[in-house]
Nucleic acid binder design. Sequence first.
RNA 1: GGAGGUGUCGCAUAGUGGCCUAGUGCGCCCGCCUGCUAAGCGGGUUGAGGUUUAAACCUCUCGCGAGUUCAAAUCUCGCCACCUCCGCCA
Length: 423
Amino acid sequence: MIDPRILRDDPDAVRAAQRRRGESADIVDELIAAEQVRRTSIASFEAVRGEQKNLGKLIPKAQGEEKSELLARTKELSQQVKDAEAAQAQAAETFDRLMKSLPNLASEEAPEGGEDDFVVLETVGTPRDFAAEGFEPRDHLELGQLLGAIDTERGAKVSGARFYFLTGVGAQLELALTQLAMSKAAAWGFVPVIPPALVKPSAMEGTGYLGQGSGDDVYYLEKDDLYLVGTSEVPLAAYHSDEILEAESLPRRYAAFSPCYRREAGSYGKDTRGIFRVHWFDKVEMFVYTTLEESYAEHERILAWEKEWLDGLELPYRVIDVASGDLGLSAIRKFDCEAWIPTQGKYREVSSTSNTTQFQTRRLDIRVRGEEGTAPAATLNGTLCAMTRTVIALLENGQQADGSVRLPPALHPYLGEVLRPLA
RNA sequence: GGAGGUGUCGCAUAGUGGCCUAGUGCGCCCGCCUGCUAAGCGGGUUGAGGUUUAAACCUCUCGCGAGUUCAAAUCUCGCCACCUCCGCCA
């Protein structure tokens, strides 16, 4: 949710931001009208309510005829108060619903356009030339099967399409990555967290994951009215909901390890091989609470940490500045890191960091107490390590002609230098 | 899953229908006093929203939501959280 004052003071800025996202600006006029109704209905309610309170004070002191006259008048007022309150509540709800459907104001610095209009900010490392090395690279699934690391057939048997088992060195690799990522994050000043992966609707709604059709991509347990989170951003954002944080305590940085569940509705037929696009994976996620003013610099810092992580894994990657039409509801700007996937001949997303400014904190009621009163906090999120895609990148980029896989030095303490095919 | 209990301002507590504009203590902030510190004295101290140039005023907020009533922290119902016991389990 954006600052309602911007609507009043500078509606053109909101219209411009909508256009940058490639969306209609009509909602701005609807919002302005709804706010007007909201304010006048508040004024009417307060007027009758005030009168009711004043008359009510006279009743215990009044006697006889004066008293019964007062009672008659207040009885009439009572109904008016109820009606005015209901009207006020309805106007507030209408305004609130519209406000919540409005996406965050896309940054003017984000490239304009849709999914394909991203800007490449940087390319790090060089993809290997397998032709020069004299062999055809195997894809991650073939390698995973040779190593006894990935079992998608049994994943499908037990849970269905887009599920998998990690076995042997596959399981060990995920545990090693988890341990490495969590200890790196702790060294950078993040508080390690293991959050619940099931959350109430308010948490899901507050982070913006139920809006604009994205609700279809979320698993929901009807019996219990709980959602399975698609990222630990959700429980981490809701962690401080309904709280006021002291300005001196910021930034608060959290790194969470959690499973992530995604229905992948609307991606039928896309990335169906292996474990690239799955219904469940585990992830270490960074999440920061700070002030709006600090959020822009923090976004750069999170990106820097993501790069440091990929550098440590010695993966070739590039960084893109996601276009305004592809930001999702909550972000004003988003940077993705994409690792090179040799058998696809492309860079593919392995991490993503968003500045969601005050969009989530207004919904979740998270404020900062500073010198000049309270203001909504700002939140940011960024992937440190999404397990399945990182496993894919490590296997494919580290492979050798015999199907063995060389690991980066950072992982040697956990798994040795080379993963070897089963005999 | 069953039975019982609790939920008031940062913390602790008072409050069983109108004198609650929620009192008191602690903590915290400002001032006075004071060789220093402590004590003492005076004032302030939930948050949100509305009217307004401003000062100021008003409304809402006693876990959340409905209801009863002219009037609800207080009475009724539903929900949530926590505590104790039983059952089950890791």
